[in-house]
Design a protein around this nucleic acid. Structure first.
Lengths: 115, 115, 115, 115
DNA sequence: GTGGTCTAGACCACC
DNA sequence: GTGGTCTAGACCACA
């Protein structure tokens, strides 16, 4: 399920995974998210680690918690995730990518062809 | 100069910086590289950390050490750096970038325009 | 109605709500209180949770239960609630409030003006 | 050191404690904060718990981390803390306090006298 | 059943 | 030495 070879922390990978589920419309707003314990079993990690992923999402307003019931995809989670990820992409990833690209002597045409 | 809050290790930030100087032809082959101590002061960094950056570059044959004299850019450093960074770029950065791009609903045309 | 993200337990939010109805004289002594089931539906809450709120109020002598009939506001409920809440307010809320106020550089005059 | 009788989580109490040190000008901007382990020993808590307090402060930009060195009070930490706490106080604490006050039949004059 | 907090202890990368 | 991640396991309050 999770790719531990990635050097990103597991809780990040889980949180990203959930964001992607939302972006891909696999998990819709209002849906109940698997419980911390379920996630932990599913991904073979410690419940604490799964919990940490949820807390990030909660802080970002992507997921809300109903006490004693579980976590749910927040109302406009899709837009929140999309705009957050887009912002990061445009402000951080794209400039870094373009900088590397130019430095290494590639053009957009090259990349497009190789991709 | 150094971004201490970046999640990239500092020694790598330094080593990348030097590689970029070489790629940008600011430091030419045969040039003397600032000493570990100079780098450490310049970048407000522990000398051990600066040392480690040099060690990496030395292992990769990008700089060579003349004992008691200093470090120098190796003879074919430009090509070594270029091919190494290109490999990494094509195998790691490009796929990740394209994946993000698609998921966020952008095309190469969009990126080209925005960049 | 209910704030599920509040860190106060829901049963307490309910019980506070009822106390406030009494303090505000909206619910008078002798009045019949909505049934557990009604409360549960109204507040979109598990009946067990509504029940727990009632249990607390009953223990404190604020509502009384007539078996098979329903819950009613107790005879001297107003005074009981008032003195209980006043005690809590003076012993807990006021000191904490004043401490925060001073630390943040406000005076009573400021607060009075802002309120 | 810490008042565990408080029903707030310990990591919150620690994080508040640090904020208060800053508000009270006991810890100045640029100062090094005791290490996670030191705090843990000092307050007799688990390092994980101390760490969690730091992560909150880091997320809020009150404290910055130099990798492998330690945590430091961020540049304009005082203002950040002050405005954050003031905002919370004015938007949350004051209205709640005033509401309770009025409901319980007290006036500002009463409170001022009692405090 | 749910989430939340905390401890103890290990291991890691980094400075 | 520093922070950071993760596990295992306990305990709690809440629904």
């Amino acid at each position: 399920m999770m790719d531990f070879s990635d050097n990103q922390p597991i809780y990040q990978q889980i949180s990203d995974f959930i964001c992607n589920q939302i972006l891909d419309k696999k998990w819709q707003e209002g849906d109940r998210v698997p419980s911390v314990r379920e996630i932990a079993v599913l991904m073979e990690v410690n419940p604490n680690t799964a919990m940490r992923a949820f807390q990030i999402l909660q802080d970002e307003g992507i997921v809300i918690n109903k006490r004693g019931v579980g976590h749910f995809i927040a109302d406009n989670a899709f837009n929140v995730v999309l705009s957050m990820k887009r912002k990061e992409f445009l402000e951080t990833d794209v400039p870094a990518f373009v900088k590397s690209m130019k430095r290494l002597g590639y053009t957009f045409a090259d990349i497009k062809e190789l991709a």
